[in-house]
Design a protein around this nucleic acid. Sequence first.
DNA 1: TTGTAAGCGTTATCAA
DNA 2: TTGATAACGCTTACAA
Lengths: 336, 336
Amino acid sequence: MATLEDVARQAGVSVSTVSRTINRPDMVNADTRTRVEAAIDDLEYRPNRVARRLRRLDGRAHMLGLLIPDIQNPFYSDVVRGVEDVAYARDAAVILCNTDETSDREQFYVDVLKAESADGVILPPIARSDLNLDIKNIGMPLVFFDRRISDASVDTVVVDNERGARDIVNHLIELGHRRIGLINGPETIATSAERAAGYRRALHDHGIPFDDELVREGRPTRDAGKALTDELLRLDHAPSALFAANNQLALGVLESVREHDLRVPEDIAVVTFDDAPWAKLLDPPLTTVRQPSYEMGRRAAELLFDRIASPDRAAALIVLQPELVVRASCGSGMDT
Amino acid sequence: MATLEDVARQAGVSVSTVSRTINRPDMVNADTRTRVEAAIDDLEYRPNRVARRLRRLDGRAHMLGLLIPDIQNPFYSDVVRGVEDVAYARDAAVILCNTDETSDREQFYVDVLKAESADGVILPPIARSDLNLDIKNIGMPLVFFDRRISDASVDTVVVDNERGARDIVNHLIELGHRRIGLINGPETIATSAERAAGYRRALHDHGIPFDDELVREGRPTRDAGKALTDELLRLDHAPSALFAANNQLALGVLESVREHDLRVPEDIAVVTFDDAPWAKLLDPPLTTVRQPSYEMGRRAAELLFDRIASPDRAAALIVLQPELVVRASCGSGMDT
DNA sequence: TTGTAAGCGTTATCAA
DNA sequence: TTGATAACGCTTACAA
């Protein structure tokens, strides 16, 4: 790899002139500039990003960190793609960090990102508060996504979870459902709590009493979704509809329903938070609330670059709107 | 962030002693070592990875590049996770690069990875041969995955595509199918060619004449899969079974079948290459060939670290075996 | 407008 | 066993 010095030699100038040609072209004489540019082309010179990053306060050679629980969850794949497209447009590279929501991995990646002098980090706020503190003190711009946190000092982009949940539960109710089961993640996570709130709100708005027997929460995994649904289906007075609060839980809900040989929607209606490419392929096609997950990533990355450019602007909170996608998995409902 | 110098001052030694304590603990006096280690703990010192990487031939502060077409394709998400888990275990960070198989993005990321002095790169061989050449000359260890290439000088991990395709087509034939449609990617891509070969091989082994009317290829996308299937379904003598050669095509195939109001498997059997979390939720559950995609990533990363450790060992070719997952989407077959 | 030189945080070489 | 110091490739005062 050619270095600044190689270019300087070839162009017959000093390294600083070459550097200037690259970073402040207007400050160099037109003739020298062409000469230097020729040398750069000739040697296929590319600035070494590591050397650039070694200098503090350097605005070039951007490197972003992106912490997510698990790339195998399609919601996060979408977010990652959104972030990366923005990063690409700005010549930035992104370090991908799967944490499994595990403090070991979170700690490791936070350390790595610091040690890499990353220009900023995008991540969902972390449950463990001490680590969160560590992250607040990470010393570089931060953007939260997916989950909001009471602390309003950090740029954040989320979706209106309560509204999404409310919309889809309303839909169920309007179709005649009264006993609606909710399979949710732990309410200690903001998204789960908000979706539960939307569920309760829809019930309340229609004067349907809240029955906590119908609400189950557990880890937001496929297996948990299945086990929780099994519980609900074994109830004496089983629900006529099931609402899975995210895509992983949905997989488990659907699996359980299938194993119980229940027809959808004749025997039971099923709806989910998070749309998926395969949702319309199910029989019947699944009614869902679509989160703009790609856009969430995009906006988060834009917020981050904004923040890098103006470190002192007030923190922004972007609330994206979910969209109810009505397909056929709710039937016409029935009061059981 | 504390630096080596801070630690040195605090411990009352020179920076080289601190550096040595970290990198060659055995070469430093036990007393000084404890003193230095105390200072390190005290200041929460972490080596700056950027500075480490600036020095050539440095074996610490690993940084890997991972080029994939698109993280939103679950096959690649799995691979990424496999790579990352190995990287994490070795304290390495990975830069994620979505290329869309586009030479602009490929070029950009290859440049970035060079400029970041990455320790190595994992990627599927790239179709455009000039870029491939560029990549061969990238000057850092390389591991290919997914697609094999005639050039045997690069470490490679692939799946036995021909066998996978053969197995699943055999399965179809044994169930009585004779007219089997193949929805494939472009045969210029090695994986597509191999899967087509497996398809032909199964036909041939059973004395079924090859009918190229039943084989359609196009871009490996959902839309293409749908359009291609539409074509097949409009045939006078339509196939009794459809084989989608990858997960994106499968989505389109399934969509087309559904829009034609065909029952599976009564009217038509459907099978796919690539298993998916939702494959068993379909009605009927989908018979597939499962690729060990996570393991592909894992093995690729291991190969890369091996290569970094021993740059001169002979190139390895790892061929992973796919697994036929029989579910119910093939019925008992019928000769139409 | 250009060049010299210091500095970013490490590691490696060489002397002590 | 330890410490000075050069080097990695770049940017940026500062001087010319």
